[in-house]
Structures are given as C-alpha cells and as structure tokens.
Design a protein around this nucleic acid. Sequence first.
DNA 1: GAAAATGCGTCAACAATGCTGACCAAATTC
DNA 2: GAATTTGGTCAGCATTGTTGACGCATTTTC
Lengths: 189, 189
Amino acid sequence: MPKGAAQALLAAAESEAGTRGAPPPAGRNLLFLREEELRLAQDLLFFGYRDFTAGADAILADLGMGRAHHRVLHFVGRWPGITVGDLLGILAITKQSLGRVLTPLVEEGYVTQAPGRTDRRQRLLSLTEKGAALERRLFERQRETIMQAYREAGPQAVEGFRRVMRGLMGEEARAALARLEAPAEREGK
Amino acid sequence: MPKGAAQALLAAAESEAGTRGAPPPAGRNLLFLREEELRLAQDLLFFGYRDFTAGADAILADLGMGRAHHRVLHFVGRWPGITVGDLLGILAITKQSLGRVLTPLVEEGYVTQAPGRTDRRQRLLSLTEKGAALERRLFERQRETIMQAYREAGPQAVEGFRRVMRGLMGEEARAALARLEAPAEREGK
DNA sequence: GAAAATGCGTCAACAATGCTGACCAAATTC
DNA sequence: GAATTTGGTCAGCATTGTTGACGCATTTTC
C-alpha cells in the first residue's frame, strides 16, 4: 500500500468518523479501507503484545514462573503497600487465581505482607529486595524492547501510541491506571 | 510522594518526549523519569490489550471457544487459502496446539480444507460462510473498541500507535505482517 | 454486645491453551 | 527407491483462568 493511500485512508476515516463533513466518495471502497485499517490494528496488537511479553516470559520460565507472577511483581512494585483487594481489582482475576501465584511469591521471599495499620484484616503487599531485583531484571528486558520501539517511532508517535492505548481501555482500567499514575493518595483515603 | 511531584513528573516526561525543548534538568532525575515513562508503557499494554480482547472473548465463551479459535478465524479470514504450515508460522505455536482448535473448527463447519493444487499434501484453509459470519461478528465487536480509541485519539495518534506497535514486534512478526499486508503473492511463490 | 459484613486464605474441580515427545501416512524431492 | 516434507494424532504435563464452598479474623452495624 503506497504512502499516499494510507494518508487518504486516514483522512477518510477521520471525516467519516465524524468531525468535518465532506461527503465521502465511493463508499464501498471506502468501507473496505476502513475495515482494512481496523484489521491491521488487530494484527498489530496481536504481534506487538506477544513480542513485547516474550522477553520477560523467557526469564520467568527459567525460574518456574509465568506471566501472572510478573504481573504481581509489576503492580506490587508500582504500588507498594497495595492491598490484596486492590490488586485483585487491578488484575481483574479471582482471589483463587491470584492466590496461586501470590502465595508462592510470598513463600519464596519475593513479596512481603504486612497487616494494615487502620484495618488489620488487610495484608499490605510490598516487594522484598529479592522481589525488587527480579522485577527490575524483567523490567530491564522489556525496557529494551520498548525503548527501541520508542526510538524508532519518535516522540510524537509515542504520544499517539499512549492516546490510542488509553482509548482501548475500559472505564475500570482507566480508573486503575489513574490511581497508579497518582501514587499520592494511598494511605489516607 | 506528594501530588505536585507526580504532576511535575508527567510534565517533565512529556517535555522530554519531545516537542518543546526546555533542556531537561538533573540527569539522575531524568533517568527516573524515563523509567516512569517506560513503566507506563507496560501498564498501557497490559490494560489496553486485555480490554481490547475482552469483547470478543465474551462472544467466544458463549460458543465454547477461546481466543485461540479467534486467532485462527482471524488469520484464515485475512489470508484465505493459507497452508497449515504458514498459519503455524504466524501464530508461532506448535502443531498440536493449533490442532486442538483447528480440528474442531473444521468439524463444526467454520473452516474448510482443500488439498493444495501444486502440492497435494497441503491443506489450504479458508472460512466457510458460517466461519466468515462468526469472524465478522467478532470483528464488529472489536471494531467498536478500536474505532472509539482511534476517534478519541485522532488520526495523527493512530499513525504513532502503528509505528510504536510495529517497533515492538520482532523480525519474524514484521515479516509475517508484511506478508499479510501484501496479499498479492499467495499462490505463485 | 450480638449479628452482619468484609478481607483474606484455601480446598476441589474444571477449562483453555501453551508445551514436549513419539509415531504415522501421504506426497514430494533427490 | 530413499529421504524429506507436510500434516495429523495420541499421551502427558504446566500455567492460568474459572465456580463453588468453607473458615477465620476483624471491622462495622444495629
């Protein structure tokens, strides 16, 4: 597909998507282009996500862990002192599924649990040094992948990537992300 | 970390990401900002991909299928007449894993197999009407998600999204994607 | 202060989707 | 005609998700 066509395609998609109102041409062909564009997004997400996770997966496999362990390490590292309930909310899995990876992580000394100060039923989760070290190792691996993609694409593309990815997320994920990005209000509220 | 700091962090990351050029401060701090930026990418990919697939997953669950079935429907639909070997290459899974979803899809009339014309060992895969109908239903569901994200983000962001996602992919995935996007040379080569 | 709700853990069973290893049949290639 | 390639299948295993049902400690509510 020549570059000009891609540009036209974008413009057409945009105009039909609805801001300005230049009446779209042909119609049938335009519909095809739009569909092709969206199918490309499916492809990109499949290949991109798979390869993004591949590096960390390899490290984890050596330790007898899986992607689920990484997620716990990632989000506990991102939000130290998080409660089990909040972690369940972020991951959107069941307590049993989380338990299967969290319990071993605690037993093997990657994660610590501390009783909540205001509510002693809670187990506030944090990474141990060992856990932080592993998380960092996994991060460094993914960092390479992301940095390369960011460098190749350029800063403007990065901003666009962020905007689109945010748009793909549902309400709950956006809320969770907002909380992750504003780590101020943990203890208080 | 006080709220102001988080704001400053985001702003700084933004300015470093690129357009305006106030020279970035400290350096140690700058390294930290870069890391935050990359961790955000991890978050975005996790939440975004999960929610992107959620809609189709729900439809599939009703039919007793999973994401793996969808992938087969998607890529067979995208490349009618694909051989089993090529499909294995695109999905990057084992023959056994593919067989577990492909065989039922054939048996239940979603996918047809035709012996290759030049090489009769091959089974050229295509969607039946039933298969195309299901694939379309799944596509329509994801289309909504993507279209909304694209609309919210704007055409420039879409281009950036594509560039970054491409950058995340490894060599093999890029090659596979290139073949998918240039569906001309199927039979011949 | 008793009752209800909440936070967390656990046992048991099941499903989807990866994997390895082994082996077979048909067709093609050398 | 032997070796290779393409595809299928059986058997077993691991990860990670699911329901459903309890149990315990603690907090909240009446």
